[in-house]
């Protein structure tokens, strides 16, 4: 096993990530306007942008889900307990002592166990919470005739906003964690260029070399 600079993020993977970043930021901005946190943009324009961007993001998610399952990429996100303690201990203690990150990335397992658990929760709980409540919110006109329509709208609205802030909190921690270890730039670069240093078995190295996916 040796570390090599390998192309781990395909073009679609990067496009997925960065368009998700862009649309989630736009959704935060317009959503905050709708909640009344800032007055920039008229309400109607904010509704329009929020709706269009949300639908576009849903479409992207549909493609991404298809892509994850056809390429087997979904396996990256399956949570596991192995190494969890070490990583948790590192963030809570070791990082202050200047210790090295205990996790060594592999091609099959880019994410450390804590990271994988966080992404899993994001994808399986927060994202469904936001889009299911969002679609229910958006389609209010189709069900508001039901008894207690306004009551359910209020429940949905509260749930949607809470889920949005949970995602925002994830983003804060996600961005902060990029500053740990080799530094922010080092961590962001792979998602731009596609290449990252990972441990490869000789067999894997030979295979990736053949494919032209190893940089050094």
């Amino acid at each position: 096993m040796a570390e090599h600079c390998v192309k781990v993020y395909s073009r679609f993977n990067r496009l997925w990530h960065w368009s998700q970043v862009g649309s989630i930021m736009l959704l935060f901005f317009t959503g905050a306007r709708l909640l009344g946190l800032h007055p920039i943009l008229p309400f109607g324009a904010a509704v329009l942008i929020h709706t269009v961007v949300a639908l576009a993001l849903l479409l992207l998610w549909a493609f991404a889900t298809f892509w994850l399952f056809t390429t087997g990429g979904y396996k990256q996100f399956i949570p596991r307990m192995q190494g969890m303690w070490e990583v948790s201990r590192f963030y809570a203690y070791g990082v202050f002592k200047g210790e090295e990150h205990p996790y060594v990335k592999s091609y099959e397992r880019r994410h450390n166990p804590l990271q994988a658990a966080a992404y899993f929760a994001l994808k399986m709980m927060l994202f469904p919470a936001i889009w299911i409540s969002g679609l229910a919110y958006l389609s209010y006109g189709f069900w508001d005739h039901l008894d207690g329509g306004s009551f359910w709208l209020e429940i949905i609205a509260n749930f949607h906003v809470l889920a949005a802030f949970a995602i925002a909190s994830f983003v804060v921690v996600h961005v902060y964690l990029l500053t740990i270890g080799h530094g922010f730039r080092q961590h962001v670069r792979p998602m731009v260029s596609g290449y990252e240093k990972v441990d490869l078995t000789p067999e894997a190295e030979a295979y990736f070399r053949q494919q032209g996916r190893v940089l050094d």
């Binding site: 909640l35 009344g36 946190l37 209020e154 609205a157 509260n158 749930f159 949607h160 906003v161 809470l162 889920a163 949005a164 802030f165 949970a166 925002a168």
Partner: peptide, 9 residues
């Protein structure tokens, strides 16, 4: 209004 979900969030 900033609803309860908003305040908790």
């Amino acid at each position: 209004e900033i609803n309860l979900g908003g305040k908790l969030g």
